[in-house]
Amino acid sequence: MPSAALFDEAFLKKLEYLYVVSKKVFSGRIRAERRSRKTGSGVEFADHRGYTTGDDLRYLDWGVYGRLGRLLIRLFEEEEDLHIYLLLDASASMRTGRPPKIDYARQVVAALAYVGLSNLDRISIVPLAVGRDGRRMPPTRGKGRIFKVFEFLRGLEPGGATDLSAGVGAFVHESKRRGVAVLVSDFYDPAGYEGALNLLRYHRFEPFVLQVVDPGEARPSLLGDLEIIDCETGEVREVTVSPRLLAAFAREHQALCEGLEAFCSARGIPCFRAETSTPFDELILRVFREGGFLR
């Protein structure tokens, strides 16, 4: 599918629908836009603290002073923009699959970005692949910016090897503001994904994991004598594929996926596995339903 056709009018309608539906889903839990834990110049009362010199007298609670004779300052919750970082694996392995996993990932990222932008969150898209340092979409907010997101995603050409740890390492050091970090990848990393997720956690990001899986890659239908080439490393291997070998491969792939889920579950990281055969809107709803992505 050409990248231009990824975000057509029908896609936009679907995004709007997703936004409306997601609001209904989460209306019981989230009544307004996000609030930070900081206290400041908000309107919502949060707490009291003792008066110290220099405090603004406008926030002095005179009622308490009249009843108790103590000078207390009223604290209000300060409203703050939420930063959502969409970390998109743009390595060469994402190019494979039918349809290519990168296309599916683009749509998912665009949908999440739309929901975020609609909630007035700050959205930033960070492609992860060896040799892609510095090419990221800076944080942006406002529903109208969705087209910029589309443009960025369209211009994203997958390539290079997967090195999640290196990519996430660079990201955490460059991003001063903490927030939600949604990692969208196939997790085909020779060095493993554990380092990358730990890095996000250590730097107090709230990681979300979204694994994109092509069913054809999970359960390939190859047979016979083949020469398989790794699309990232160029590694060549001769294989005689038999049904038994295919079954073993499928088990191995399943083990890879289940390993990721177990790792995330053990660390309280929400983890979703998305098969490219599943419509992306269904995935988005599932992500919202299972909760955690929006507070």
Partner: peptide, 22 residues
């Protein structure tokens, strides 16, 4: 030696693990 069909895979290491078992 027959000329084998070439197939591009996203993660050859997974195949390597399977083959190693066998």
């Amino acid at each position: 030696k027959l000329r084998l069909r070439r197939v591009e895979v996203p993660f050859a290491r997974l195949w390597a693990r399977v083959l190693a078992e066998r």
